[in-house]
Design a protein around this nucleic acid. Structure first.
Lengths: 186, 186
DNA sequence: TTGCAACCGGAGTGATCAGTCCGTATCCTC
DNA sequence: GAGGATACGGACTGATCACTCCGGTTGCAA
C-alpha cells in the first residue's frame, strides 16, 4: 500500500505506449510474441518495458486487468438504461462484438500457469458485481430466465466470444441470447 | 500419395506412445511445453519424436486431427439413434463434456500462425458432414430451429466447450441447448 | 538555469528450446 | 540365425528469448 510518487511525464507516456503496443502485438501475433517486438512497436527500448512491468507475466496481467476493467465499465454504463432486458442483452452483445481477442488472454495466462491471482482478482470482482446487477434487474423484469447465476452468464460471455471467432456473424450470439431468455414453452 | 511400407512394430508402438504423451503433456502444461518433456513422458528420446513428426507444429496438428476424428466418430455414432432430436443434443453434450482441452488446441495452432490447413482440412470436412447430417435430421424432426447452419452449430460447440471450462457444470450447456431449440414463443 | 533524481536505450548474459546427426540397438526377411 | 534395413537415444548446435545493467538523456524543482 506504498503510495508511490507520481510518474514523470515521459514515463507515464511510455507506459501507456507499451500497454497499447502490447495489446496490438499480442492480438496479432499471439502471446508468444517477444517482448522486444512489443518494445519496437511501442517505439521504446526493451529496458523501458521491463522497468514498467517487472516481467512478461506482469505485462500480460496488466493487459487482462485493462480489458476486464473495460467490461466492467460497459456493464455499469448499461445499468442506467430504463429497459432492464435490453440493457442486459445489449451489454452481452457489446462484449462479444468488442471481444476481438479479449478472452484469449485469460487463456493465455492460464496456459502460462498463472491462475487469476491477486492482481486480477479485484477487477474480476468488479466485473462480477456489475454483471450481477445487470442480470438481477433483467431477471426481475422477466427478460432473463431465473435459473442461472452470474457465474453462468460470465461463462457464456466467454463461450459466445469464442463462438464469434469461429463464425463471425451474429447467429451464435442470437442462439445464446435466446437461450438466456428461457427454454421454449413447449 | 506415396503409400509407404508399413512401420516396423516398435516404430508403430512409439508413434502411438508419443501421441498419447503429447496429449497429456500439452493438456497439463500447455502447448508451450517442450518436445523433450513430451519425449520423456513417452519414455522415448527426442530424436524419436522428431522422426515421427518433422516438427512440433506437425505433432500439434496430428493431435488436432486425432481429436477431430473422434468428434466425427461421435457424430456418426449418434446418427443411428431413432430419436433425431435426442441424437443431436446428446452428441452436443458428449463433445462438450469430453472436450477437456479439446478445442484449445485449435486455438493453439491458430496462435502459432497456422490456419486449419491441408493436413487438418480433410478431418474438418468429415466433422462438418457428420454434424450436418445430425443437424438436418434434428431440424426435420422439429427439435432444432431451422434458421441455423452447421457452421453456427460448430461455432457453438466451440463456445459451449469454452464456457464449460469457466463454469464446469451443465448450466451454460443447458442455456445453449435451449437456444438451439428456438426463441421462446412469446 | 542549474543540478540531480528519475528515466531511457540497447548491448550483453544465461537459459531454454526446436531440430540434427550418428553410433548403436532392434526388427524382419530369407 | 545371419544380414541388412529400419528405428532408436541423446549429446550437440544455433537461434531465440526473458531479463539485467549502466552510460547517457530528460524532466522538474528551486
Amino acid at each position: 500500500m506504498t503510495t508511490a510518487r507520481p510518474l514523470r511525464a515521459d514515463a507515464q507516456r511510455n507506459r501507456a505506449r507499451v500497454l497499447a503496443a502490447a495489446e496490438r502485438v499480442f492480438a496479432e501475433r499471439g502471446t508468444a510474441a517477444s517482448t522486444e517486438e512489443v518494445a519496437r512497436a511501442a517505439g521504446v527500448g526493451v529496458g523501458t518495458v521491463f522497468r514498467h512491468f517487472p516481467n512478461k507475466e506482469a505485462l500480460l496481467q496488466a493487459l487482462v486487468v485493462q480489458r476486464l476493467a473495460r467490461v466492467a465499465a460497459d456493464a455499469r454504463e448499461h445499468a442506467t438504461s430504463p429497459d432492464a432486458g435490453a440493457a442486459f442483452f445489449d451489454f452481452f452483445a457489446t462484449v462479444v462484438h468488442g471481444s476481438g481477442t479479449k478472452l484469449e488472454l485469460v487463456d493465455a495466462l492460464a496456459e502460462l500457469g498463472i491462475e487469476p491471482n491477486e492482481a486480477v482478482a479485484p477487477v474480476a470482482e468488479e466485473v462480477t458485481e456489475a454483471v450481477a446487477a445487470l442480470l438481477q434487474r433483467a431477471q426481475h423484469a422477466g427478460a432473463v430466465r431465473r435459473d442461472i447465476d452470474v457465474r453462468t452468464v460470465i461463462a457464456l460471455l466467454a463461450g459466445a466470444s469464442q463462438a464469434h471467432r469461429y463464425a463471425p456473424d451474429d447467429r451464435p450470439l442470437a442462439v445464446i441470447l435466446d437461450g438466456l431468455q428461457g427454454p421454449i414453452a413447449q
